[in-house]
């Protein structure tokens, strides 16, 4: 074996067209993601980033191209099986409102008839991992939690089946700035601890650059650049990428300007 890590996710000319005459939402995207990488997908709303993510766990099926997970073409695998192998976190709601925190986390393993005690103790362990005290929070309902706490529960639920791949669709989109920063840091810590492959969709360039070991930049369905934050900033491959980076700089110089006053 060589030193190269295994390819976790491979997109091969993946396209998605929702209706015949519409422009493709995702347009011939090709990319390889290695096992254990933290990848962020960055783009403005409607650029196809969420569509690409949803095709990865077969919530949507591509109209062209193939998606290969650990060597297996997912179109040959039953969608429910694909989803159960992956963690999935979405923005806002995500949690089932009529179930407690513990029920939300354990519902799937219970449905799959896994041992109740094992499931329970793992749920408590995961709650601690996302910094929620199990004794305080396990029996609460989602409506009794803050947005940040709900998202922690969503994270714990996604980690429950110990998936190799975690898909996160703007997980911090609806969360205030301070909580978001601490959740981002915890996500990085969890990634370090679990060594899973993370795929996170965001429209926030700071979040994408901070979290991603490599960043996929998308616009109008196309993948414009897929590289490390460092290389993207140094060598933007496209005028859109350049504009994106300039916008981040402008924001930063505003803050620096205020500090200088």
């Amino acid at each position: 074996m060589n030193n190269r890590r295994m390819i976790a996710i491979e997109y091969e000319q993946v396209s998605k067209q929702f209706s015949k005459n519409a422009k493709p939402s995702v347009d011939r995207v090709s990319a390889q993601i290695e096992e254990g990488e933290f990848i962020t997908i960055l783009g403005s709303s409607g650029c196809g980033k969420t569509t690409l993510l949803k095709m990865t766990n077969r919530l949507l099926d591509p109209s062209g191209g193939r998606i290969i997970l650990f060597g297996q073409d997912i179109s040959t695998v039953d969608p429910v099986t694909v989803r159960r192998r992956m963690g999935y976190v979405i923005q806002q709601i995500g949690l089932l409102p009529h179930m407690t925190v513990e029920e939300n986390i354990t519902i799937l393993p219970k449905l799959m008839k896994q041992d109740r005690e094992t499931v329970r103790s793992r749920a408590r362990q995961l709650l601690s991992m996302v910094q929620l005290d199990p004794d305080t929070y396990a029996a609460r309902y989602p409506s009794e939690l803050s947005g940040g706490q709900q998202q922690r529960v969503g994270l714990a639920r996604a980690l429950m089946p110990d998936p190799k791949i975690m898909l996160l669709d703007e997980p911090f989109g609806a969360i205030d700035a301070i909580t978001r920063i601490s959740l981002q840091n915890e996500l990085l810590r969890i990634h370090r601890e679990t060594k899973k492959t993370f795929l996170l969709v965001t429209h926030d360039i700071n979040e994408a650059m901070k979290l991603g070991m490599r960043v996929m930049i998308m616009d109008k369905g196309r993948l414009l650049q897929f590289d490390t934050p460092h290389n993207i900033i140094r060598h933007p491959a496209d005028p859109f990428v350049e504009a994106l980076i300039r916008s981040a700089y402008e924001q930063q110089s505003f803050w620096e300007g205020v500090q200088d006053d």
């Binding site: 919530l59 429910v80 099986t81 709601i93 519902i107 639920r157």
Partner: peptide
Amino acid sequence: GVREAAKGIGMTVMQELFLVQVPL
């Protein structure tokens, strides 16, 4: 959104119907 979350974590159509849609 709740239904998509149910689907996304790997519930079958029947599980989504009886464990999520019916109670809600």
